[in-house]
Design a protein around this nucleic acid. Structure first.
Length: 267
DNA sequence: TTTCATGTTCAGCA
DNA sequence: GTGCTGAACATGAA
């Protein structure tokens, strides 16, 4: 049976960082001796043939992450992995790649790693320069200073959460961690950035760094996330872990959004 | 059977 | 130019 270390969830920054660390811990720096490629759609913008040519006979070295994107260096090329809504890394130990393998790599020492995806909403490609590839994106939000964070958000108007989720403003934030950070900062996600005080944005920054770091520390396993997070209450009838009020479901920027009606007041 | 989903991109509009 | 909405992508769950 194939080992899947983590439960599947939509990969946001902590999930991708966890997969990066799993790769570093489990994938050897040995040559790739076999490549399996899945549906052509996953390679849109590149091609399965290009990816195969770039990795076959090469050994992986550096593994870096920018936002939700992961890059693995193979010689002079980099393998780009974007996980979409449910892409994930698996380390099959029975010698067989999973059915939903989009890219399977078999290394000389016998190790196998598979990028798996059923819905095909992610992407696999080969790029020559990750820094150039991410140039149009915002800075990776992990470790970003409060000053830079506030400045990036101030550069755009509109609902706070819509800007947090815009990968061209900040790279790495997804729907769940965005809601969590707004909740912990007691800021309403639908509040327009231009109407929020710097202090509000700084609280969001602090909360966001905290939840992302906690996510990474817990290996993105949400069973280990603190019980006082909004995270566990995202369902009809769910209550605020602080005040007990029934949570409210709305849409902000088209995304399902949970807030505490008592503590997150829209300015 | 129908609706919805945590990501991203794009067309069309205000 | 900016921001918003809805559709599209493909599949499974409710």
């Amino acid at each position: 049976m194939m080992a899947r270390v983590l439960a599947r969830r939509v990969p946001e920054l902590p999930e991708v960082e966890t997969m990066r660390r799993m790769w570093l811990a489990r994938v050897p720096r040995r040559d790739v001796v076999e490549v399996r490629t899945g549906p052509r759609y996953l390679f849109r913008g590149s091609s399965a043939g290009k990816v195969r040519a770039a990795v076959l006979g090469q050994a992986p070295s550096d593994v870096v992450r920018h936002g939700k994107l992961m890059f693995v260096r193979f010689g002079s090329n980099w393998l780009l992995l974007h996980f979409g809504m449910e892409g994930w890394l698996a380390f099959p130990e029975d010698g067989r790649f999973p059915r939903d393998t989009g890219l399977g790599l078999h290394f000389r020492d016998g190790t196998r790693v598979a990028y798996t995806s059923q819905r095909l909403l992610g992407r696999i490609a080969v790029v020559t320069d990750p820094e150039e590839y991410v140039r149009d994106l915002g800075p990776d939000v992990l470790g970003l200073s409060a000053k830079a964070f506030v400045a990036r958000l101030r550069a755009r108007r509109g609902p706070l959460k819509a800007r947090l989720l815009d990968q061209h403003v900040l790279a790495g934030v997804g729907n769940l961690y965005a809601d969590e950070a707004c909740f912990q900062a007691r800021v309403h996600p639908a509040a327009a950035t231009e109407r929020l005080a710097d202090a509000d944005l700084r609280r969001v920054h602090t909360a966001l760094q905290r939840v992302l770091r906690k996510g990474i520390a817990a290996h993105a396993d949400d069973k280990d996330y603190p019980g006082n997070w909004l995270w566990h209450r995202r369902e009809a009838g769910g209550t605020c872990p602080r005040c007990g009020a029934v949570l409210r479901f709305t849409r902000v920027g088209g995304r399902g959004t949970w807030t505490c009606p008592g503590e997150q007041v829209r300015p």
